[in-house]
Nucleic acid binder design. Structure first.
Lengths: 183, 183
DNA sequence: GGACACATGTAAATGGTTACATGATTTT
DNA sequence: AAAATCATGTAACCATTTACATGTGTCC
């Protein structure tokens, strides 16, 4: 998976390992994360397979290692992209814990839920800030519509999580979770 | 993680490794999955740590290995449950691929999206069937409200995914994704 | 008697994380 | 001159999947 993400990011622009870490964190941090300990070996692996190539830029005592994608790297990435999206590639540890929350006494349960609701609201706020900025910058109209759309998915997914957690904290009838307006 | 899930499932009822696999698949398969190759060694590990105990039930040529949770296992699980839910424990490979979908030509892109929408609709249909059954069985009213609630979360999350994918397949303005009715 | 679900396990490979080690450059 | 950030890397560890190996019980 990481290999494909690195190739995808290098499709946008050449980058260092450090730069990859940052863009992965910022752009897709809500759905994925990677550590330096996986990124650097992955770049080495991709280089050996000739999917990326390395350009060393010396300025002063420092050597910057910039990786760019090769033609065969592009081909590999494009064939990954064209594959059907496979189901079952999800892991949601939040909901997993909620599944077991019946075992916790009422007081502790609502405490855990409330704390999580607060954290999710903070996170949602940050996403909405990013959206506001990118919206005034007129992003997401042309060649980065899909990329930009994942931010909107993140916002909606966070809102769902908050609505869901508040609903079960208040122990409202579960059926009502499915009832939304006319849209 | 798997260790805690196994302990949680054994809180409900004693079970075999095979039974654990099935209940994990059925109950939390939407958020988590585990293979036999992880379950059996996990049970062995938990037994060594004295968090579960093994009862061998012989009937005929066959020996059934039933695991049950011990007092210290209960304590470990309860302290996991009472911990705050940590953010960043998510992995959504679906949305990850959509992030890169700008690189795919229009035709292939809508093909990939359509195929995924179809699969998600099938999956949603299955969840709704389960909901209908459990609803008539009057589940989720007492000691399994939270457990049952995750099914409703799964339904809502699937609906969001479908709405999101259809929205971007049709390239509707992203802002409109955030607009819902008065609820 | 064949297919399928039940049932348990192991070995190798995969795909990471965490912690450590090191040092340059920029900002305060 | 200290702190933060930029920058690269390795080794040990961890969790887990995949593939293999083996056999039993049940249903048609």
């Amino acid at each position: 998976m990481l290999d494909n993400i690195i190739l995808g990011m290098l499709m946008k622009s050449e980058m260092s390992g450090y730069g990859l870490k940052k863009i992965i964190e910022h752009d897709i941090g809500a759905f994925y994360s990677a550590s330096f300990g996986s990124i650097y070996p992955a770049l080495e692996r991709l280089k050996r397979q000739n999917y990326v190539k390395l350009t060393e830029i010396k300025n002063g005592a420092r050597v910057k290692k910039i990786y760019s994608i090769t033609q065969s790297g592009r081909a590999v990435f494009m064939s990954y992209l064209a594959e059907p999206i496979k189901m079952g590639g999800e892991r949601n540890e939040h909901i997993l814990k909620i599944y077991f929350l019946d075992f916790l006494p009422e007081k502790q349960r609502s405490l855990v839920l409330l704390e999580f609701i607060q954290k999710t609201k903070m996170y949602l706020g940050a996403l909405e800030q990013v959206e506001k900025m990118l919206d005034t910058a007129q992003m997401g109209n042309d060649g980065n519509y899909c990329e930009f759309s994942t931010l909107y998915y993140g916002i909606e997914a966070s809102r769902l999580t908050i609505r869901y957690c508040e609903h079960i904290r208040d122990r409202k009838p579960l059926k009502k979770l499915l009832e939304r307006g006319p849209f």
